[in-house]
Simulated scan of single mutants.
Amino acid sequence: MFTSDHGLRVRRLYKLILRVHRGLPAELRILGDNYARDEFKRHKNCNSDEACIFLNEWTNYAINLAKQMKPLQQAKKKTVGEYLDPTLLDYMTEDQLVQLYQLHKAASLGHEQPDSTLDQHKK
């Protein structure tokens, strides 16, 4: 279905995301690594149109997070992330909305077992 070049691009992007996550606070790094791993596994056998969208969105995520992790940006803002445009919610499926809510709950827990909420959604 995909060429070997595609597989190489996916692996490079995944490794880049994990490297960028190293600059996050420990609890966010765990949450981010687990979420990225699950998403990449979940989309392993998707069709080519979905794969294109998936790779573009994760590439944008990696670029935006890398920019936020620069020392100068950290000194100015002292925060990571950005607000989600509420109009995007209209385009999400019910499963995506549930997943977004679960991710929000897990991120809001702070130090209290950040990856356990994501595991409950899989059951």
Rank of each mutant, 00 (worst) to 15 (best):
Y61K: 15
S116L: 15
Y61D: 10
A75F: 14
L100F: 07
R29F: 00
T3V: 01
T79N: 14
L13V: 12
S48F: 03
K77I: 02
R29P: 01
R12Y: 03
L31P: 00
L28S: 03
K105D: 00
M92H: 06
A106R: 04
R12Q: 14
R22D: 07
P114F: 01
H121Q: 15
A66Y: 06
M69P: 08
L16E: 06
R29L: 01
N60M: 05
T3A: 03
I63V: 15
G32P: 00
R12F: 05
E39H: 10
K76E: 09
Y35W: 12
K123H: 11
Q120C: 07
M1E: 08
T3H: 04
L28V: 00
D90C: 09
Q120D: 13
D38W: 01
S4Y: 07
D119P: 04
Y83N: 10
G81Y: 02
K122R: 11
A26D: 02
Y101S: 07
T93W: 14
E27H: 14
F40D: 05
R12H: 08
L28K: 05
A36Y: 04
N56M: 08
Q120F: 14
R12I: 11
S48K: 05
P25M: 04
V10W: 04
R12E: 15
P86I: 14
V98E: 15
Q99V: 00
L18I: 09
Q74R: 15
R11K: 09
A26C: 01
V98A: 09
R22W: 03
C46V: 12
V98W: 13
